[in-house]
Structure formats: structure tokens, C-alpha cells
């Protein structure tokens, strides 16, 4: 890995983590949610400083270039993050529906409606033995 790539990676990872921390400070990102992104930034930083694990991993998975390993792991990481976010969204929409239904149930405080009989109709008794 040449020096130029490593320097750019270092700068990007530092700026990225700083930005994530700023978002947390401004309460635009929850602390728990920020962990995964801070870890990602730290991982990029470590790989830029210490190249050995990346080269080792490249050999292990049989890739020719360390760049392929990077792209591959980045894709796997993003796929899982997206999936995780989707599960959070499903949970949230369930919660929103539940809340909306409760609001609906509270939208009228009266007694159950029993329509007035407007035209003739024989009342039938509904009894079960």
C-alpha cells in the first residue's frame, strides 16, 4: 500500500470520526447508534497505520489485491448496517401503528354508539343457549 493512499485514509477516518462525534454532540445521532460508525472510522484508521492485518486477510480469502479485500469488507459491512436499520424501521413502524391506534381509541370519550332506528325493523333477540 503506498504512502499516498495511507495518508488520505488517515485524514478521511479522522474527519469522519470527528463528524460523527459532532452529530452526537448536536443530538442528531444517538450515542448507541454512533458506536457502529465510530468503530468503522477507527477500523479505517488502524488499517491505514498498520497494514499487516489487511495483507494477511487478503491472502486468507485468496484475493489478489488488498484493495479488493477492502471493497469486499466494506460492502459486507454496509449490507449488514442497512439490514439492521431496516429491522429498526420495522420495529418503529409497529410502534407508530400501535400509538396511532391508541390515539384513535381515545379520540372519542363517549359511550358506544347505538344507532337510532330510523325505519321499521324487527328487533331480534340474540341469545345463545
Amino acid at each position: 500500500m503506498n504512502l499516498q493512499v495511507r495518508i488520505i485514509s488517515l485524514i478521511v477516518s479522522v474527519l469522519f470520526v470527528a463528524y460523527v462525534i459532532r452529530l452526537v454532540r448536536n443530538r442528531k445521532l444517538g450515542e448507541t447508534d454512533s458506536i457502529v460508525w465510530i468503530l468503522a472510522g477507527v477500523a479505517i484508521f488502524i488499517l491505514a497505520v498498520w497494514v499487516k492485518p489487511l495483507i494477511l486477510l487478503t491472502k486468507l480469502i485468496g484475493a489478489k489485491l488488498w484493495a479488493s479485500t477492502l471493497f469486499f469488507s466494506g460492502m459486507v459491512f454496509l449490507t449488514f448496517v442497512t439490514l439492521w436499520i431496516t429491522t429498526r424501521m420495522s420495529a418503529l413502524s409497529d410502534e407508530v401503528r400501535e400509538l396511532a391506534q391508541r390515539v384513535t381509541l381515545l379520540s372519542d370519550g363517549g359511550t358506544p354508539g347505538r344507532p337510532r332506528v330510523t325505519s321499521g325493523g324487527d328487533p331480534e333477540s340474540l341469545s345463545k343457549e
Binding site: R97, A100, T104, S107, D108, G110, P112, P115
Partner: peptide, 30 residues
Amino acid sequence: RRAGARVLSAPVNLGYGGAVQTGFKYAYGH
């Protein structure tokens, strides 16, 4: 309401199933 029914109004579009389930919840609670 004028026809005499009790009406519960949803604050957002619940969808058909969401509305029906609200009715079930009412029936269960009452």
C-alpha cells in the same frame, strides 16, 4: 356520527388492516 354510530378517528392513515385491528382492540377492551 349523525347516523348514530360511535366514531373513532385515526390521526394518520392506519390502512385497512390497521383500522380493523383498532376495532378489534375496542371490542376486546369493552
